[in-house]
Structures are given as C-alpha cells and as structure tokens.
Write a protein that binds this DNA or RNA. Structure first.
Length: 472
RNA sequence: GUCCCCAUCGUCUAGCCCGGUCCAGGACACUGGCCUUUCACGCCAGCGACAGGGGUUCAAAUCCCCUUGGGGACGCCA
C-alpha cells in the first residue's frame, strides 16, 4: 500500500481549456508536485458526439504552455469502455444496479410532477424492483440507498451530510451501452489509483453519488477537495459571454505563463500577504489548507499587473525567447543575442505584455524611423536644428557611448544654446524612435550604436530642413 | 421549486479553526505627491470592507441561530 498522493485532471474535450479548468489542473498538478506524488491526465470523452480531436490537441497545448506536465496518460475514456462494462456488470450481479426501460417521456413527466409537489426532480424507481433483463434500449441504473445519509468529507469544506432521499437511481449506462460520467469517473479513479480528487465545487453534488458507487463496489473512498469556482465580473460562472477565457488566448495576447499560473493559483489560494510567486515557490508552498471557500471573480487588471511584474523579474534571455514570436508577428526577424537582450533591458519596465513589448521594441529594428505626425510637428522644428547638428557631429567623433561620455557632449550643446535637457531630449527621442515616449535617451543611444544614431539624426535634420525650406 | 455551498475594501485576499495584540493588514484599480530627458519603473500618501439581525461572553470579523444576498446542482453533459 503506497501512501503517495495521486491526483488527476480530467478535461472533457468539447472545447478549449478555459481559465477555470486551468486552475483546477494547476491545483492538482501543484498538489502532486508538492507532495512528491503523481499527476495523471485523463480525457473524459465518453460522450463521443461532443468530443473532438482538435479539443484534445488544444487542451494539451494549453497545459504545455502553462508548464503542467503529467506522469501518466493521457488516458482516454473512449478506449476503456470494456473496463466500465465490467464494473457495470459487477454492480448488476451484486444487485446494486438494474435495467430500466422507462421512456424519456415518462421520465420527463415524473420530473415535472416532482417539481410541482415541491420536491427534487428525481427518478421514481419505477423499474427498481422489476428484475428486468437486458433488452434493446434499456439503460442501467444504480440502485441507490433509500434511507440514511451519505457523508462527504471534504478537505476544504469539512463534513457535508446528504440525505439519501435527495438522491435517486441515476443512470450509469446509457441505452447505447456507453457509461455515464459518474460511473466512468469512479471506475477510472479506482483503477488509476487516484486518491486525491481536487475539482470545482460544481461537482460537490455529484460526490455523494460517487461515494455510493465506491461503497457498492467495495472500494476505498478517495479524499475530496472541492475548490470554489471562478466567476466572471458579473459574478456568474465564467463562460464565453465573459470574452477571452481560453488559456491560449492569453498566450496570444502576450501573457507570460508564469504570470498566468501565479494569478490563477492566487485566485483561491493564499500564502499570507505574498502576491508574487515563481513556479518553484508555488510547488514548495501550495497546500489545500489555504484554499479559500468562496468563489472568486476573475480580474484581468490584476492579471495584467502581475504579468508586468513577471516580465520585470525575468531575465532578458528568457524574455527574448518569448518575445521573438511577437516580433515576427510584426515582421521583425530578431535573433537571440546581445542586441536583443540590450533592447529588452531598456523596455522591460515599460511593457505589461509581450505584445506591448514587441511594439516598444519595433523602432530598434527599422532602417528609417517613421515619425508620428504630432511628434514631428511638435518637436522637429528649425529651432532645434543647430543643436541636433552639433550633437550629430560630436557623436561622430566620439568613441564610447556610455553615459559618462555622452553627458558632457549634451551639456556642451545645451550650454551653447541655453537649453535644458528636456528641450533637446524630446526632439532626439522623436528622431530616434518617431515617438514622444521611449526609453531613456542615453540608454537608447548606447543600444542603437553610433551608426544608427547618427543616421537617424541625419534623417531628422533632413526632415526639418526639407519641411522648412518648402514652407518658408 | 428542492438540495448543496458561500458571505472582510470595487476586485483578489490576510485575519476566523485556537474570541482580546484589528477603531481590520497586503495586493490590483483609483486619487494626490516625490523622482525625472518622455513614457514607464520605483517610492510616499490617500480613498476604501467585517451583508443585516439576534444571541453566547467581561470582550466577536472571529463561536451559535435566523434573515438577506450570491453561486452551484438537480441530464441517457461532464
């Protein structure tokens, strides 16, 4: 008997991996890693009509991006029908299940009546004692206990008692012979030795049914931990209505997976006042004790802030790797190397996403700068012509481009014209980047290099001269 | 309708289990200021919450009950 923790993540491949699912996956993965246990990936595709290969691929891709790896699987329920069949037969043989031939119409009527009389819409047990044999179109129902209570012991919620009269004889095998969710999960969790089930609390109501199944099968009930759900800003369950909610959509919007992981885990779990966590720290500190009990609203603003923080904290090399695809998206082919790293160093504090970072980096990679209209008209004016020329000449002469070398040059020009740095920095900025905001002048000069700076300065001088000659 | 869960700033949360150290702490957002060659970053300050009502107690955000509010589940989906 091994006491190792075994958790699992069982996505249903009927769409992409959304934020709530990602968080559940993360909790399970983190808990397994934290305890030195195993993490199993299982694809729940018993509903063949809704499951697609594309969804499976999308989910795996999202997990990979998040850095979630698994020790076993992915298993596919669709390939395990014979296993479920065996367990269903066991239940049938032990008298814990029976065939039911009630029509959909009858079932619907029974539900309506139950609702009407102020009760829960559940099956009335019509076929329960009929001792029916199999026949075309029959389903198999679980013969649930009629009296007593089923106790759920939850790591997060404590003990929850369900009155068995609230539960009914749910279907475990459809008329087409395939197993239903509750049966399949239980059988899988048993056969895969899953002993810790961490999932959304929308499954809390399924838990007593599943416990009854474990008991009927004579198997040990695993440990449950129902985590609160993730809600949209309107406080309802996260859905397509809330805009981007696929994990990969955030990747494409320029989010760092470490930030996504940090945010998702922190939404529902806490470690005192700490907000920023690296993946390793999460593995080290994550536990079930500090998972909260109330649902949390997904806050994109906070994710964004955290993303900026993770970008600032990352190394230029690591950032470069993630930035390159966003650069190519803009038609910029940059390779890892000192130039890129230096570029990143100047913009990492000003970028909240990789999309922003690519935008901020663009000017470093163009031959000729394109001026923003307002920027040019405001700063590239004749008054600045002489200072710009002097700086250009001085730069052409100079060797080093470090701040100690640059400052005296600027100082001399400033003194000569009675200008403050601000007066000269803005035109310079426009000349070098085309915009009115950018990294610091001195750092840009150093990164761009003498040739590029001089060339851009000359472009700007030419621009001013041509505009003013024609106008005046 | 029935059952289950939940309830601290706008949002994420610390504190609650083991009542007093909490006229409630942190973060995001917002506002103001500092720094300053722009934009950021950073720093400082401000705004802002124990859902309501009853108990228990010398003392309750913390324990109990009720109300209200929110969420979820009731399917031959998962």
């Amino acid at each position: 008997m091994d006491s190792q923790t075994v958790t699992r993540f069982p996505p249903s491949p009927s769409g992409y991996l959304h934020l709530g699912g990602a968080r559940t996956a993360l909790f399970n993965w983190l808990y397994a890693r934290h305890t030195g246990g195993r993490f199993v990936l299982r694809v729940e595709d018993t509903d063949v009509s809704r499951s697609t290969k594309e969804s499976v691929a999308a989910i795996l891709e999202a997990l990979e991006w998040l850095g979630i790896d698994w020790d076993e699987g992915p298993y596919f329920q669709s390939q395990r029908f014979d296993v479920y069949k065996a367990y269903i037969n066991r239940l049938l043989a032990s008298g814990n299940a029976y065939y039911c031939t009630c029509s959909a119409e009858r079932l619907e009527k029974v539900r309506q009546e139950a609702m009407q009389s102020g009760g829960k819409p559940k099956y009335d047990g019509n076929c329960r004692e009929k001792g029916l044999e199999w026949r075309e179109g029959a389903v198999v129902r679980f013969k649930a206990p009629l009296t007593g209570t089923t106790l759920v012991s939850d790591r997060i919620r404590g003990h929850i008692a369900f009155d068995n009269t609230e539960l009914d004889d749910f279907i475990i095998q459809r008329s087409d012979g395939t197993p239903t969710y509750n049966l399949a999960v239980v059988v899988d969790d048993i056969t895969m030795n899953i002993n810790t089930i961490i999932r959304g609390d929308d499954h809390l109501n399924n838990t007593p049914k599943q416990i009854q199944l474990y008991e009927a099968l004579g198997c040990e009930v695993p440990c449950f931990a129902h985590v609160p759900m993730v809600l949209g800003p309107d406080k309802t369950r996260l859905s397509k209505r809330h805009g981007a909610m696929s994990v990969t959509a955030y990747r494409d919007m320029g989010y760092h997976p470490e930030a996504m992981v940090n945010y998702l885990v922190r939404l529902g779990w806490s470690h005192g006042d700490q907000e920023f966590f690296t993946r390793d720290e999460l593995v080290e500190k994550f536990n079930l004790e500090h998972v909260g009990r109330s649902a949390g609203v997904f806050d994109q603003e906070k994710l964004l802030a955290l993303n900026a923080e993770h970008i600032r904290a990352a190394s230029n090399e690591a950032l470069a790797e993630r930035l390159i695809p966003f650069l190519s998206e803009k038609g910029i082919e940059a390779a890892p190397g000192d130039y890129l790293y230096d570029v990143i160093e100047t913009i990492k504090n000003r970028s909240k996403t990789f999309v922003e970072m690519a935008e901020a980096a663009a000017f470093y990679f163009v031959e000729h700068v394109t001026y923003e209209e307002k920027a040019a008209s405001k700063f590239l004016k004749p008054a600045i012509l002489a200072p710009l020329k002097e700086i250009t000449e001085a730069l052409e002469q100079t060797e080093g481009l470090d701040q100690e070398t640059l400052e005296p040059i600027f100082q001399r020009v400033m003194d000569a014209h009675g200008l403050k740095l601000g007066k000269i920095a803005q035109p310079m900025r426009v000349a070098l980047t085309g915009k009115t905001f950018s990294p610091g002048i001195f750092e840009m000069i150093r990164v761009l290099g003498k040739a590029a700076v001089v060339s851009r300065l000359k472009d700007a001088i030419g621009y001013i001269e041509s505009h003013h000659l024609t106008i005046s």
